[in-house]
C-alpha cells in the first residue's frame, strides 16, 4: 500500500490546516477502499481526542462523552465510503456525524416521544433502506369521507356544528334559535368536535 507508507513517513512533523485535511482525506479513502486498519488508526488518533473535547462540552458526564466519541468514530470506520472530499473536509464530516449522534442521544434522554431524528435534518450518513422508501401514501381523507364522518354525528350535535362552523353563527345565536340553554350548545359542540376527532383518528 504505497499511499500508506508515504504518509507514515511524515508522522514526525504534524502538518496543519489544508495539509491535515488532505492527509485525512487520503486515509478515509484508504479505509473505504481497503478497510485499512493502519489508516483508520491514524484517523482515530487525530480525531478521537478532538471529538472527546467537543463531547465533554456537550454531554452531561464523562461516560456519555465517551459514548459519543465511540459512536462517532465507529461510524467513520463503518461508513468511510460515504465521505466525499468534494463536499467538505474530513473534520467537517466527522463534526457533523458527532453533532447528529449528540442530537439523537439527547433526544433519547429527554424521554419525550419525539419522532424527529438527526438524519431527517442533516443527511450525513444517509443510506435509505428500500422498505423506508417504498411505503406508500394512502392516508388521505377525502372531502367525501369527511362528509360521511360528519353525517355520522348525532342529529343534535350536527345541527350545532353546522350552525357554528358552516353558517358562522355564534353559540348564543344557536342557543336562541334552538331554544336551548347556551351551556347545552357548548357541550354539544365540544362533544361533536371530540367525536369528529376520534372518527378521524380511527379512520386513519
Amino acid at each position: 500500500m504505497l499511499v500508506g507508507i508515504q504518509l507514515e513517513t511524515r508522522q514526525t512533523q504534524r502538518p496543519s490546516g489544508p495539509e491535515i485535511a488532505n492527509e485525512m482525506s487520503t486515509y478515509l479513502q484508504t479505509v473505504a477502499s481497503e478497510r485499512c486498519k493502519a489508516s483508520f488508526a491514524e484517523i482515530f488518533h487525530y480525531f478521537a481526542p478532538r471529538v472527546r473535547s467537543y463531547a465533554l462540552k456537550q454531554m452531561k458526564n464523562e461516560a456519555q462523552a465517551m459514548e459519543l466519541v465511540q459512536e462517532t468514530l465507529a461510524n467513520v470506520w463503518q461508513k468511510a465510503h460515504l465521505f466525499n472530499a468534494e463536499k467538505g473536509s474530513p473534520s467537517t464530516w466527522i463534526f457533523t456525524i458527532a453533532r447528529n449522534i449528540r442530537y439523537d442521544m439527547l433526544r433519547k434522554q429527554q424521554k419525550r416521544k419525539e419522532d424527529i431524528c438527526s438524519e431527517d435534518m442533516w443527511p450525513v450518513l444517509c443510506e435509505q433502506t428500500a422498505s423506508d422508501a417504498e411505503v406508500s401514501l394512502d392516508h388521505q381523507v377525502t372531502l367525501e369521507q369527511v362528509g360521511q364522518l360528519f353525517s355520522g354525528l348525532p342529529v343534535k350535535q350536527k345541527a350545532v356544528i353546522e350552525a357554528i362552523y358552516v353558517e358562522g353563527k355564534s353559540q348564543q345565536e344557536v342557543a336562541d334559535e334552538l331554544g336551548i340553554p347556551l351551556g347545552t350548545v357548548k357541550s354539544r359542540t365540544r362533544l361533536a368536535l371530540q367525536r369528529l376527532r376520534e372518527m378521524l383518528e380511527k379512520d386513519d
Binding site: P49, R50, Y54, L56, G88, T92
Partner: peptide
C-alpha cells in the same frame, strides 16, 4: 458547519 467544525475540532482532550 465548516466553521463550527474548525472550532470544535481545534481542541484536543488529554490522552
Amino acid at each position: 458547519e465548516a466553521e463550527l467544525a474548525r472550532e470544535a475540532m481545534a481542541e484536543k482532550s488529554s490522552p
